[in-house]
């Protein structure tokens, strides 16, 4: 799947999934609270619960196809796995798991390093599942409006809104330029590919400046006065749903306490 298609598909699910009409406050509260508990949990059990909960919600209730979810997870998981291998091999103190003697130094792999590596992996996977739950069930408009209501500084929210919209415009432009370069053999050979990439990036940068200029003009022509106003018609959060999320969070925190001594090794 090309990258732009993956992005567009994420967007499509966000608008059509069965949770699309649920209050964004509910969804954001669930995803963000579970995410924070997951990354701050000292026990490896809690991230597993969070991952399972978010995944079941996504696959069963939001009806996201399994293969699509796995596709999405695959990219960050590969990166994460590489980092965790480094952590396992080179981090930690205390009790050694094994030692490899080289003539000039002794390489020690620590038990605590392995534990840290596994814990990191689980925490991040738990957090990823929460983020994916949010982006796959909640349209970006809903997220922006909720952030604004939560008093996140306006300049950040408005910048994010414009960036979001024009990412898609520029992915398209970049793909077209890339194809045009390929057709004129700009990708034959490593040096030429690097040069083509440099030209493309430079060009794209200038395009973004021009686009910004034109968009501002167009916004001015419709009475823009420095404030982006949006139509707010999100459904209100259901009290039962909010209560359910709070109970879930309390269970997570309790689970974290009860499983404090569960070690990886």
């Amino acid at each position: 799947m090309a990258h732009s298609e993956l992005y567009a598909q994420i967007d499509r699910y966000a608008y059509i999934n069965p949770f699309a009409k649920t209050s964004p406050v509910t969804k954001m509260l669930f995803a963000l609270s579970a995410l924070i508990i997951s990354v701050s949990s000292p026990s490896p059990v809690v991230p597993i619960i969070v991952f399972a909960a978010a995944t079941i919600l996504l696959l069963r209730l939001a009806k996201i196809p399994v293969h699509f979810y796995l596709d999405m997870l695959a990219y960050p998981t590969v990166m994460l796995a590489l980092s965790c291998i480094i952590i396992a091999l080179f981090f930690g103190t205390g009790e050694p798991l094994t030692q490899i003697a080289f003539p000039w130094f002794t390489w020690t792999i620590f038990k605590s390093g392995i534990a840290l590596s596994v814990a990191t992996f689980l925490r991040v996977e738990g957090a990823l599942s929460c983020l994916f739950f949010l982006v796959l069930t909640t349209s970006i408009t809903d997220i922006f409006i909720t952030l604004r209501r939560a008093r996140v500084p306006k300049v950040l929210v408005e910048m994010a809104l414009l960036i979001y919209r024009y990412i898609f415009v520029f992915i398209e432009v970049a793909e077209k330029m890339n194809t045009a370069q390929k057709l004129r053999l700009g990708h034959s050979g490593w040096m030429r590919r690097i040069r083509s990439l440099a030209l493309l990036s430079g060009n794209l940068f200038i395009r973004t400046l021009e686009q910004g200029e034109r968009t501002l003009t167009a916004m001015n022509a419709r009475g823009y006065d420095g404030n982006i106003r949006v139509l707010e018609d999100q459904p209100p959060a259901k009290k039962t749903a909010l209560a359910g999320i709070i109970i879930f969070d309390i269970v997570l925190v309790l689970a974290a306490y009860l499983t404090l001594n569960v070690g990886v090794l």
Partner: peptide, 18 residues
């Protein structure tokens, strides 16, 4: 150049809200 909002509805609403 003109459509900057994340959805069609929000874009059409921009002018009247202003």
């Amino acid at each position: 150049d003109q459509l900057f909002a994340p959805t069609v509805k929000q874009d059409v609403a921009f002018g009247p809200l202003n």
